[in-house]
Each structure stands twice: as C-alpha cells, then as structure tokens.
C-alpha cells in the first residue's frame, strides 16, 4: 500500500535530509493489516540511514518524537496498534532540538 511519510524537526537528517517519502509498504508475515509497529520496523530498516537510536527506542519511537497519522496524534488511534490504510499520511516530528 502507498504511504506518505514525513520527517520533521531534525529527524529528516537521519534519512539523507529528505523530508517527504512516498513509499510502498506491505503487511508483514502474511498479516492482513499494516500496523504502526510494522511501519516503524520498516522505516528503521529501509529509511533511517544513520543513528537509528535518535528515532527509535525499543520497539517504539524515542520519547520526544511526535507521531501524527493523518494529522491526528497517534495517541488517539492506539499508538503502535494503529492500523494503516492505503494513502495514509504519517508524520514524525522531533520535539527535541538544540538552540
């Protein structure tokens, strides 16, 4: 399925300074739905070029990274369990920056 991923607030530096990525991601291991958990694993493997620890901690994003699924805070949609659909827009913004 086609997804638009946006990285902001400095996170784009971890993926070659490209802010917007149009990607195609399929559900893993024969599962029917793609969840945010799967997407994060995919992003870490395929998009993050350096310092993955700046993006993820354990199996979720690092504290201080804001995640929006279709412009809605993922806290409202179930965080890692959020299921994604075709043409969804997922935005990652780091709320931590220096001066």
């Amino acid at each position: 399925m086609q997804l638009t991923l946006e990285f902001g607030g400095g996170l784009e530096l971890l993926c070659d300074s490209v802010k917007i990525h149009k990607v195609s991601v399929e559900p893993q291991n024969g599962a029917e739905m793609l969840t945010m958990k799967d997407l994060l694993t995919w992003v870490r493997t395929n998009l993050i070029k350096e310092r993955p620890e700046m993006f993820m901690k354990g199996d979720t994003v690092r504290p201080g990274v804001l995640v929006l699924v279709n412009d809605c805070d993922w806290e409202l949609s179930g965080q890692l369990n959020t299921t994604l659909e075709d043409k969804d827009v997922v935005v990652f913004i780091s709320t931590l920056h220096g001066g």
Partner: peptide, 18 residues
Amino acid sequence: SRFCSGVHQGFGKNKVVS
C-alpha cells in the same frame, strides 16, 4: 511542536539534539 507543525512549517533543523 504541534502548534508549530500546524500553523506553518517553519522548522529549523538542528544537529545538536539533547
């Protein structure tokens, strides 16, 4: 951050993250 992301995309990028 949320306010900023909505109102305008005026983010500076900074390499020092603490």
